[in-house]
Design a protein around this nucleic acid. Structure first.
Length: 271
DNA sequence: CTTTACGCCTGACGGC
DNA sequence: TGCCGTCAGGCGTAAA
């Protein structure tokens, strides 16, 4: 499940290998992603030179001279670069070949991913228009979260997962961040102090940065013909650990459902 | 406006 | 062994 660090690691992995190269072929093997891949994508892309691979939230933005290819990895998506004529795997849905030497393949078993072409600035695109700040933006602060939460009854876990508030906090790292900040995931967003929001901001950044650092060690996997970028080995302290003792030795980790999602917390550490 | 429910989809897993 | 039901989850959209 790619979260922000995985997407950023993907960007850093594929960008340097592809930037400056020209699209020589596009092969859409299965267009049925969350939105259908445009039938004219091959004609649209072939011959264009990739200028940069950028990122906004969990969207990868492949910048060409006259537009952007927006890619989202959804739940199960991954990108990798292989040599021409490498055997396709099941669920390799789209292949974009650069300079006839580098084949970028989108692999996505669940097909919650997305690949769309746009000629407007990505920030104005319907998918990105309403996104809040990146976690590392100055704007993302305890004061910002505190002000935005006034009178909000929603659980703080849902609040920090709301992409209009801040982008890139997925289900796993939301639980982990709130654990580190000592905040109960079900607490109403509007009933948390400014000071505790400061702690949440620090925790979110710590968790994401830790994952990003571990991601750096897997960059080589993007060019391995048989490799999968793989989920990072961040040590998860509560996620997926229902019933296990917390590190505090004073409680068992509990699992509850908040907003249709599994949430994990320590009843002793988090209030 | 805020909040909640749902659907898209496949693989993993448990029960029988 | 194999079949089947259940669950997981990002995120846009519809509905409350």
């Amino acid at each position: 499940m790619p979260e922000l660090p995985e997407v950023e690691t993907t960007r850093r992995g594929v960008g340097p290998l592809l930037e400056g190269r020209r699209v020589s072929a596009v092969n859409v093997r299965n267009p049925n992603l969350r939105q259908p891949v445009l039938a004219s994508l091959p004609q649209r892309l072939t011959g264009l030179t990739l200028r940069a691979v950028e990122r906004r939230a969990k969207y990868l933005l492949f910048r060409f001279d006259n537009g952007f290819l927006i890619v989202h990895l959804g739940m199960s998506g991954s990108l990798r670069i292989v040599e021409p004529r490498t055997a396709f795997r099941k669920h390799d849905h789209v292949e974009i070949t650069f300079d006839a030497t580098h084949c970028l393949r989108l692999h996505d078993p669940r097909r919650f991913g997305l690949m769309v072409w746009t000629e407007e600035p990505p920030k104005d695109h319907a998918l990105l228009r309403h996104l809040g700040p990146e976690p590392w933006d100055e704007q993302f602060s305890g004061a910002y979260l505190h002000a935005g939460a006034r009178r909000r009854q929603a659980a703080v876990k849902n609040y920090i997962m709301d992409s209009r508030i801040v982008v890139g906090v997925g289900n796993i790292y939301a639980s982990e961040s709130l654990y580190r900040a000592g905040v109960h995931p079900n607490r109403a967003a509007g009933r948390i102090s400014r000071t505790r929001y400061d702690a949440i901001v620090v925790a979110v950044r710590e968790v994401l940065e830790e994952a990003l650092e571990l991601g750096g060690t897997t960059l080589r996997d993007f060019v391995h013909s048989d490799g999968e970028p793989g989920y990072f080995r961040v040590r998860l302290r509560v996620y997926g650990r229902a019933g296990e003792p917390c590190e505090c030795q004073g409680g068992l980790i509990r699992q509850i459902v908040i907003g249709q999602r599994s949430s994990f917390y320590c009843p002793r550490c988090q209030r």
